[in-house]
């Protein structure tokens, strides 16, 4: 269970890195496309077709951010109940909370909140790293001591 906890926490770290890379790819692709004569309006944006390289970035960012990362965080919380990781439940709970805030910021459609979205991303990254490292040390608690004896 501790290993599962560690793997899930590192998976969140990895997925946050993917989020940053994907959105940067999208912004760069969009900029290049517009400078090359591309015109974007709501109808084009909603057409769900790939009209420039990098568009896949926003799709990955949206799907992973809305579905995958929250699912992994929930799984981490459930695993935390069983894995005797020091403050494991707390860190998993903090991650679930931060990710809920992050999803809300992501779909808020208030541009200035995107500043916060970028900052909360780093907080998720750091907390996920702390959680993963907490599960890397020696086990704690009575059960862990029993394991250690055995």
């Amino acid at each position: 269970m501790r290993t599962t906890y560690r793997v899930l926490a590192y998976l969140i770290v990895f997925l946050v890195v993917v989020q940053a890379a994907a959105i940067a790819y999208f912004i760069a692709g969009l900029g290049e496309w517009i400078m090359g004569g591309g015109v974007l309006d709501a109808a084009t944006m909603e057409s769900e077709s790939t009209f420039f390289p990098g568009l896949i970035g926003i799709i990955i960012h949206g799907m992973s951010g809305t579905y995958l990362i929250p699912a992994v965080a929930l799984a981490l919380l459930v695993v935390a109940f069983f894995a005797q990781v020091p403050r494991g439940v707390m860190w998993a709970g903090v991650l679930v909370g931060l990710i809920a805030v992050q999803v809300a910021l992501g779909i808020a459609h208030v541009p200035v909140l995107a500043l916060l979205h970028g900052i909360v991303a780093l907080a998720i990254l750091v907390v996920a790293l702390i959680a993963a490292r907490a599960a890397s040390g020696a086990p704690v608690g009575p059960a862990a001591r029993a394991d250690a004896v055995a």
Binding site: D41, A42, A43, T44, E46, S47, E48
Partner: peptide, 9 residues
Amino acid sequence: VNTDEGPMP
């Protein structure tokens, strides 16, 4: 006629 999924100016 706008036959797409979003507003077009």
